[in-house]
Each structure stands twice: as structure tokens, then as C-alpha cells.
């Protein structure tokens, strides 16, 4: 019997995912959007871990490590984009201002 029922894990993951999704859709600050994306990734990871515990399979935790690495890479790339935008002379974090392609 796992200490934390699988249904609760899925419920928690859904709530986390919704929080992250709302964050991505509602926030305009790119840093907050990145953070929300990380929350969504962690929600997915939580399901993996929960499923791994439910079916006694270590693969769930392996997937969690992969997602962890993915999230780190995603954050690094996102932050790099923000820094590049800043270096190009766009000192704002508002995602909606970057909608025009300029070669």
C-alpha cells in the first residue's frame, strides 16, 4: 500500500498542471511563463513517479530524471532567449511585445 494513493497523486498533478497552464496563458512576463512551464513539466513528472509507485516500477523514476533534465534544458534555453532579446535592445520581459518578425 503506497503512502499516498494514486488517485490523489493524479488529482494533485492535475491541479498543478492547471496552475501551470493558467500561468502560461495569463502571465505576460516571460520569466513567469518559464516558471509556469516548469510547473507543468513537474506535474507530468509527478504522474510518472506516482504511476511508478503504483505499479512498483522504477521506470517512472527514470522518466522523472529525464523530465528533470528536460526542464533544466528548457529553462536554460528560455533564459538564453530572454538574455539575447535583452542584448538586442529589447529591455522588456513582456511576451506580447515580441510578435513582429524583423528578419
Amino acid at each position: 500500500m503506497p503512502a499516498f494513493p494514486f488517485n490523489d497523486t493524479v488529482l494533485l498533478a492535475t491541479v498543478l498542471f492547471s496552475v501551470g497552464l493558467t500561468g502560461v496563458l495569463v502571465r505576460r512576463n516571460m520569466v513567469f511563463m518559464l516558471m509556469s512551464l516548469d510547473i507543468m513539466l513537474n506535474a507530468a513528472a509527478l504522474v510518472f513517479v506516482g504511476a511508478g509507485a503504483r505499479w512498483h516500477d522504477a521506470v517512472g523514476q527514470v522518466m522523472f530524471l529525464l523530465i528533470l533534465a528536460l526542464a533544466a534544458v528548457e529553462t536554460a534555453v528560455g533564459l538564453a532567449i530572454i538574455l539575447r532579446l535583452h542584448a538586442q535592445g529589447r529591455p522588456t520581459l513582456d511576451a506580447d511585445t515580441g510578435n513582429l518578425l524583423q528578419g
Binding site: L21, V24, L25, R28, M33, A95, D96, G98, N99, L101
Partner: peptide
């Protein structure tokens, strides 16, 4: 395709 990333995310959702 208005270039706003949050709209794209909303379309995906």
C-alpha cells in the same frame, strides 16, 4: 498567426 506566444499556447490547449 498574430505572433503572440500566449495565443499559440491557447490554440494548442
Amino acid at each position: 498567426h498574430n505572433g503572440r506566444v500566449r495565443w499559440y499556447a491557447a490554440w494548442i490547449v
